[in-house]
Amino acid sequence: MATDTEDLNLYFYNPSTALAVVFSVLYFLLTLYHFHISILYARKQPIKHRYTIPLFVAALISTAGWSVRIASIKNKSSIPLYATSASYVVISPIFVCATLYLLLTRLIRSSLPEGPAQVFFHIPPRWLGRMFITSDIFSFLTQCSGSGIASSGNWEGNLKDVGTNVLLVGLALQLATFSTFLLVLGRVVRRVDRSRDIGFDPRVKKVILGVWIAGFFVQTRSIYRVVEFGLGIDGYPFRNEWCLYVLEAAPMFIAIAVLGWYSPVKLMQQKAQTEITMERTGITGRGKTVATSERGTV
């Protein structure tokens, strides 16, 4: 039996307040942890690892997105609340990708000797990171534009279709960029493993393990979003809430949590400090080159 309330419901299902509360709390805890590790702890260290700050931003935006969703569920006819929640949740993973792209350049510099060994696809690490970040920013702006266009038309009519298509382009670009990142990361790992004289520091291996795990869940989420917006509002993902939590909320929570557990701030800080100590005590070689490259900031 249709009612006026149902007619004004912006959701295609009966959304769960409990799940929105649970993920609001979980992401809030991640926000507190990454604020501690990426800002409070990192600022006291002699070697700066500022590239993890976007993880804090991602957790913060996700917390806001799921918190606003609670208010949106209580007022299902509010387009601003619905659009704000949806936009925050979609955009926040971009900041996770930013940390991974910047971390990739650090891994290349710290694990491979200077020169041709650090070049991939004829691109040096500094420009490789810049290219990924530039694509990430463009993806961010495209997704924001798409969300803005759709919401300006109250997520109805032609503006909704145009905005959704623009948002889909941004998501597809993000997926393509991240797929390329995983390809380059695989080649970095293979190049280091094939060298008998290099090999990964055990602490760096832990960081890379965290990156692979996080990368899997980020990629899973990205594929889901492209499929979701590709199928449109009549597709299965849009009309079943479990898809949002199983393929968006949970994967991104795991990704951000894993990058906190295998924190580059702590592990690579320990590695760099060890190498600086080796250099000061007169031990030279690869450690000296790495220590020098790690002193810079992002």
Rank of each mutant, 00 (worst) to 15 (best):
H49I: 09
H36V: 13
L60Q: 06
V57I: 15
V89W: 08
L32V: 14
D7V: 09
I73V: 13
A18K: 09
N9W: 08
A58S: 13
P80A: 04
Y82V: 00
A64V: 11
K44G: 04
L8H: 14
A86R: 01
S24P: 13
Y33G: 06
T31S: 13
P93F: 02
A71R: 10
F35C: 11
T84C: 14
N9K: 14
L19A: 15
A20H: 06
P54E: 11
A98I: 12
I61W: 02
Y33A: 13
L60N: 08
S85W: 03
A98T: 13
P80K: 05
N75L: 10
R43C: 05
I91Q: 08
A86G: 03
V25T: 10
V22N: 09
I47E: 02
F28Y: 07
T63M: 13
R50Q: 05
A18E: 08
L10Q: 11
L55G: 02
V96Q: 01
Y51R: 15
T52E: 15
H36N: 11
A98Q: 11
V90Y: 01
S87Y: 01
S87D: 03
A64T: 02
V90C: 10
R69E: 02
I53T: 12
Y13G: 11
A86F: 03
T31V: 05
L81K: 13
R43G: 00
T31F: 06
L40C: 03
N9R: 14
A64Q: 04
A86W: 03
T52V: 02
S87P: 04
Y27S: 12
V90E: 13
S67I: 01
Y88K: 07
I70Q: 01
A59Q: 14
